[in-house]
């Protein structure tokens, strides 16, 4: 658990972060969202002490990080940068082995764990002996992720990890990333300015502007209960597509008509409406199964009708 209490930071008289506080629960992924210069990256870098706060305190699992040796602290926190930050003079294998080496792992353990993480990230082992600049941007970013995950840290910090990639690569890597079992258990703080990315990956979103937190909440809360005009305007242009991403079939369950069918390849009701609509592009209907084990068969018309009812309900609240 990370708890941030009233931290501030100025750069040459310019206040980048103003007395902000938030908590990240174990296993939760919190996304710091905002425009350039809103203080989100500064906030992120204060968590692993790349930047020292002027005032305030950050605790990780109840311990004040200011009392720990910065090198030791950083070795226990995974960090992924926008431009991957791979060492150009190290091979992929050596890049991945940096933190294990700092932690004094033996070679065998490092090699086994490297193989494991490569497999999970769909990276071929033939890359191991190559230098980073021989790899594509997407592959480099995967290696950067592997480097951050190889020691299985409980906390992962990511600074615009997909920011430098082209749209197609970004979408596909984001999808892989979301499906990665390795990440489900991790406490994650990620910085982005991409609203869609935030809505796809976040448990909660922390919307920032000019060094202050405007609103912290789930994607749905941000979308349907914006606290002020800024929060509302920030999402305004994308509202419909964001809603499709924020709303899951579970949210719509009560508005969907009941059916009696039951098939083994049903999708879980946690699936977002966006993903379900994508599936309905190639097939006329899909089976959904909810937590309590009941099944429903839906098609495009049923889905949009349910969504429309759901939105009405939200507005009345």
């Amino acid at each position: 658990m990370i708890s941030v209490n009233g931290i501030s930071k100025s750069f040459g008289g310019n206040e980048a972060v103003k007395k902000i506080s938030f908590e990240v629960l174990p296993g939760e992924s919190l996304i710091l969202l905002g425009t350039s210069g809103c203080g989100k990256t500064t906030t992120l870098k204060m968590i692993n002490r790349l930047i020292a706060p002027d005032s305030g305190q950050i605790n990780i699992n109840g311990k004040n990080i200011a009392g720990e040796k910065p090198e030791i602290l950083r070795r226990s926190i995974g960090y992924v940068l926008q431009n991957n930050g791979l060492f150009p003079h190290y091979t992929v294998a050596e890049n991945i082995a940096i933190v294990p080496k700092l932690l004094g792992w033996d070679n065998k353990k490092t090699i086994l764990r490297t193989q494991e993480i490569l497999e999970k990230l769909h990276l071929s082992e033939q890359y191991l002996s190559m230098f980073p600049n021989a790899l594509s941007g997407g592959q480099q970013q995967r290696v950067g992720l592997a480097r951050a995950l190889v020691t299985d840290p409980s906390i992962l910090l990511m600074d615009e990890p997909f920011g430098a990639l082209d749209n197609v690569t970004r979408t596909s890597i984001r999808k892989e990333f979301k499906a990665l079992e390795e990440l489900k258990r991790k406490t994650m703080v990620m910085v982005t300015h991409d609203i869609h990315e935030a809505f796809e990956l976040a448990d909660r979103i922390c919307l920032m502007d000019r060094g202050k937190i405007i609103q912290i909440g789930t994607p749905k809360e941000l979308l349907f209960k914006p606290v002020n005009k800024f929060a509302k305007d920030f999402l305004a242009g994308e509202k419909l597509s964001l809603a499709f991403k924020a709303v899951s079939l579970e949210d719509l369950w009560d508005f969907l008509p009941t059916t009696d069918t039951q098939t083994p390849n049903a999708i879980p009701s946690t699936e977002s409406m966006w993903d379900t609509m994508e599936k309905l592009q190639t097939q006329t209907s899909v089976e959904v199964k909810n937590k309590s084990g009941s099944y429903k068969n839906i098609d495009f018309d049923k889905l949009t009708a349910a969504f429309s009812l759901y939105q009405k309900g939200n507005r009345h609240e």
Binding site: N48, R74, L81, G85, L86, P88, V99, L102
Partner: peptide, 27 residues
């Protein structure tokens, strides 16, 4: 040297000496 590389080295927990000898000087 690329600022990202230096930041990555620091963020992974390398000491100032390690950054100098393993990253800055070789590069």
């Amino acid at each position: 040297i690329d600022a990202n590389v230096r930041e990555a080295a620091k963020a992974m927990g390398m000491s100032a000496k390690q950054i100098l000898f393993k990253v800055e000087l070789p590069l």
